[in-house]
Amino acid sequence: MSDDRKGETGKIGAAFCLMTALLLALVVLNVCLGSFALSPVAVWRSLLSRGGGSTNDRIIWLIRMPRLIAGIVLGGGLAVSGLLLQTFFNNPIAGPYVLGISSGAKLAVALVMIALFDASRSAGSALLIIAAFAGAMVSMGFVLLMARRVSRMSMLIVAGVMVGYICSAVTDFLITFADDANIVNLHNWSRGSFSGISWDDIGVMALVVLPASLAVFLLSKPVSAYQLGEDYARNMGVNIILFRLVLILLSSLLSACVTAFAGPISFVGIAVPHLVKSALRTAKPLIVTPACFLGGAIFCLGCDLIARTVFAPTELSISSVTALFGAPVVIYIMLSRRRRSGP
């Protein structure tokens, strides 16, 4: 029996090592590849100068590095947020994007941006996060209201997608009629992109995403109890009301933060937790939460690499790429679930 356990721990350890290696490889690729390619050694030398030297040095230090770190932090946060929502709704295809939470955050951020552009000031990143969080909470509130009324989970998802469409439509209106030179930026952002992120932004997002993700990890025990359903969790001594509240706040905060900086990014929140669970053959939060963070970072870095390089110099929106890889996973989940529960 203990041999068994050792074998399992070993396998999971190996999986973590593999994921870390993959992440490191993607980090190197992301720094080196782009509109001009550099060897890792050249990049290393350039990094040591901290953007002080040539144009290349500045591109690497001021553009590629922040973008790379944003991909890691935001991708990780997004996957963890998805994991929380799936636990909360007991539904494998719940996620911040399909439930309309990202779109709600997007709408609120667009409103704030436009209001501030008109007053010819630029919005601070903390303010954007607050706006996104407010928007996310409004959408989340709506979804929760719906969840009380509809018993079927698929209907909840449909309601969430509709909320998402409404928010996106209103955002598009706002962008179309707003007159500002920065509108191009806003437009890019609203489609989802890791570009244009500064070191200051990195500081703020790390301050939000990392503690929030750590908090989720520390909640592993009640999350594991909640996976058996509310009634059993309560019998195990979980304070259900408090726990649900914390779960909602954390998942909204995470997806709001991502949206504030990178716009709505689709499917990462669903695809990554699913892939991670199937790969590790477990759903234990203690293992899956950190694995999801790593997996989200890998997924987003990989997708961003594709978005930046495949049609260079034209850049794809990150959401198109994540959808390309994430949506098939969702379809697979739905089909396999039907097969299992079918006659």
Partner: peptide, 23 residues
Amino acid sequence: MTNRDISHKLAVVLTERLKTELM
């Protein structure tokens, strides 16, 4: 009593189908 107190003294077996994932 808190849920925690109760959990040490009382356990339940419910009718609803338990949906588990990879357990």
